[in-house]
Simulated scan of single mutants.
Amino acid sequence: MDSTWLVLLSLALGLVVGAGFVAILYVAARRGAHAADVASPAVPDGVDQVIDALESAAIVLDPSNNVIKASPGALSIGLVWNQALVHPHLVDLVGRVRRTGEPITEECELARGPFGEANIHLSVRVARLGSRYILLLAEDRTESFRLEQVRRDFVANISHELKTPIGAVGLLAEALDSASEDPEQVRRFAHRLTEESQRLARITQDIIELSRLQAADALTDAEIVSVKQVITSAVDQNRVAAEARGIELAMRGDKRAEVYGDEALLVTAVHNLVSNAIQYSPAGSRVGIGVRIVDGVVEIAVTDQGEGIPEDDLDRVFERFFRVDQARSRHTGGTGLGLAIVKHAVQNHGGDIRVWSQPGRGSTFTIRLPEASHDAAVRPAIGETT
């Protein structure tokens, strides 16, 4: 009997010890799994796919602020480098969210990339992602800020451009009244008054033309237009100004080229380029107007022998009211809208315009338009840029 109890007691003790050992193993396994989970760089299920699909910048950070997931947008604008956030300000935002648990939304301006000099404008939102991670979303607002700056500049410039001739007209009218008994002074003031009124008329006409072009998505009554006729008309309009300064206007190239569009609008575009070339060329020099067809694209190039355009200004020459040489442009009566009109006229014809220039070597502006096909079935869609 005693031996039976001993056996039973041994079995009971064995079961208790085994159960305890199993419990210890279970707890150890749970702790190991938790430790592995803490150390794992994996993000919650589904977040990977969402971030990969985002066009905007998205970044997931672990408790040590290591970047464990970044969208292509975040990499393209330089927010992440070497698996870390580049900008201390963004690190500070992440730290504040981690401490308070409250999401933050902020507009900020940062350098593009770790070594970038150009700035980008971002709309940033930082929030918790589960209990461990931080999610940072950033929308690049740089282009919106640039367009807003262009709009403000346009309003300021147009106010100034109109104010100058209007003020001059008022002053000259008063001067005429004061000089009514001096015929010579009257003639001089009247001549100035005519010049200012013509300048005001040019500005007004250019603004109206530019507004009309920007409001039109495409040309509704496109016709086959002879490029030779367009250039001939544009050159004829500028011949007197060229002869007055001894500038030769030389036309060359393919005389058979044709495009679809509005002849009057294309004449205006080429006229503006030739007029600019004459204004910024030295007396006695040469302005070339060439035409060629390359792979179904008609290129109209206007080349001058002027002072050229600084590299920093090349991207801005088609902006409204932008002038490379403010003083000279005002002296020649330019409105600062000519190249903007050219750009929009060409875009409305499904083309584009390019500029090459080097200081001291002159400039070349090239209009590129789809070549016209006489087969109506394959006519290009006017208004679509090639």
Rank of each mutant, 00 (worst) to 15 (best):
M1S: 15
T4Q: 12
W5G: 11
W5A: 11
V7W: 01
V7Q: 00
V7D: 02
L9G: 04
G14H: 06
V16F: 12
Y26P: 03
H34I: 02
P44V: 07
A57Q: 10
P63C: 02
K69C: 07
K69H: 14
A70T: 06
L75N: 08
L75C: 05
S76T: 15
N82D: 15
T100L: 01
E102I: 04
L110N: 15
R112T: 13
G116R: 10
E117T: 14
A118L: 13
L122G: 11
S123F: 00
V126P: 13
A127H: 09
L129F: 06
S131F: 12
F145S: 13
R152I: 05
D153M: 08
S159E: 14
K163I: 07
G167I: 07
G167M: 06
V169M: 10
S178H: 11
S180G: 03
E181D: 09
E181P: 02
E181N: 05
P183S: 00
R188D: 07
T194R: 11
S197E: 10
I203C: 08
L210V: 14
A215L: 01
A218Q: 05
T220C: 04
D221K: 07
D221M: 06
D221S: 07
A222Q: 03
V230D: 04
T232I: 01
A234R: 02
N238K: 05
A241S: 14
E248I: 04
E258I: 04
V259T: 06
V267T: 12
T268A: 13
N272A: 12
Q279N: 15
P282R: 10
T303V: 02
D304Y: 03
G308L: 00
P310L: 06
P310G: 08
D312P: 02
V317I: 10
D325I: 03
A327V: 03
R328Q: 03
R328P: 00
S329G: 10
R330S: 05
G334K: 14
T335G: 09
I341H: 14
H344R: 14
V346K: 07
I353Q: 12
V355Y: 02
V355L: 02
S357M: 00
S363E: 01
F365Q: 00
T366M: 01
L369Y: 11
P370L: 06
A372V: 04
G383D: 02
E384V: 13
